[in-house]
Nucleic acid binder design. Structure first.
Length: 302
DNA sequence: CATTTCACCTGGTGGC
DNA sequence: TGCCACCAGGTGAAAT
């Protein structure tokens, strides 16, 4: 389901709804442990903590958690040596983040959802985690295919979560070119590599290559400077447009409030196989590249 | 080392 | 209706 725009929409929605809330009850379900860490250990760590802030890094949702016994407006008495860290968006939250004692990191995989619900809302099939909040509402993690990952980090023992790749919304021209320099793989495959850029997935790789007029099979290291810059700008544009429209709801994506996004209406190539190109009427072509369905216009993309 | 393929899961869709 | 093949927003281990 989720690439950068969808994860951004969910994270900001969850942040608006649960920021400042205390976790009073934790429930994990399912027979197996589909996560990065035993459910019991996560539950123990989460219980009683205040959610200070929820934000996105790459495709990960990071919930910044206070210490279990602190109040929402606690003063910085229990300073944590490792707590001053990178990876925080500069939104003026540093003062409070420096006392953050833990993180809950959510990766949605293909079909994961993070929902804020009322306590009486019916529990959807494949609900794997429910965090009961002081207000009575619940934060629920639902994931049919179970490709998603949940991880709890004690910040006194670990560094804060940092995305492995560059941020596609703020990467500079020079950094962007450097990422692909000398690489002998298809540009589409390179865009999907999270160690290079964090947050680009199948939809936005195809859509940005269309906007930049570049064929997905072109080798990353052979792109000209002009083409790389066109791609960087196209990628930024398409991601920002998609965030503005709440992401793409292709089959069942919904935000933290259960609402769909609308960027699927703006797709030029993704899942438009055989349909006429919106610019030149040539039928859109589908190939498999890096194991993923890949869509492009053979006329507009060279 | 860099690059490619495939397994991990469940569910929806379309052909026969 | 049923059965089956194929497809799906991602990722990392294994193979090449």
């Amino acid at each position: 389901m989720p690439e950068l725009p969808e994860v951004e929409t969910i994270a900001s929605g969850v942040n608006l709804r649960v920021r400042g809330e205390r976790i009073v009850e934790v429930w994990f379900g399912g027979k197996r442990e589909p996560f990065k860490m035993p459910a019991a250990r996560q539950a123990k760590g989460l219980e009683g903590r205040v959610i200070l802030e929820v934000h996105r890094t790459g495709k990960h949702i990071v919930c910044e958690l206070g210490t279990a016994d602190e109040t929402v407006q606690s003063h910085p008495s229990r300073k944590d040596k490792n707590a001053a860290r990178m990876g925080h968006p500069s939104d003026g939250f540093e003062e409070q983040a420096s006392e953050t004692a833990a993180q809950w990191i959510v990766h949605l995989g293909m079909t994961g959802r993070l929902l804020v619900t009322t306590p009486d809302a019916p529990v959807a099939p494949h609900t794997h985690a429910r965090l009961g909040l002081a207000s009575g509402r619940e934060l629920r993690f639902v994931d049919p295919r179970r490709f998603g990952r949940l991880e709890f980090r004690e910040l006194s023992r670990n560094a804060g979560f940092v995305a492995p790749g560059a941020d596609p919304l703020s990467v500079t021209t020079a950094e962007f070119a450097q990422l692909f320099h000398g690489r002998r793989l298809a540009i589409k495959a390179a865009l999907l590599n999270q160690k290079l850029l964090s947050g680009v997935g199948n939809i936005y790789a195809d859509e940005s290559l269309f906007r930049a007029g570049i064929r997905p099979r072109r080798l990353a290291g052979r792109l000209k400077r002009m083409e790389l810059e066109a791609l960087r700008l196209a990628l930024g544009e398409v991601l920002r447009d998609a965030i503005r429209l709440g992401g793409s709801s292709v089959s069942d994506y919904v935000d933290s409030d259960g609402m769909p996004g609308f960027f699927q209406l703006e797709h030029c190539v993704y899942q438009r196989t055989g349909l006429p190109c919106l610019r030149c009427q040539t039928p859109i072509r589908r190939i498999v590249l890096a194991g993923r369905g890949t869509h492009y216009c053979p006329q507009c993309q060279r």
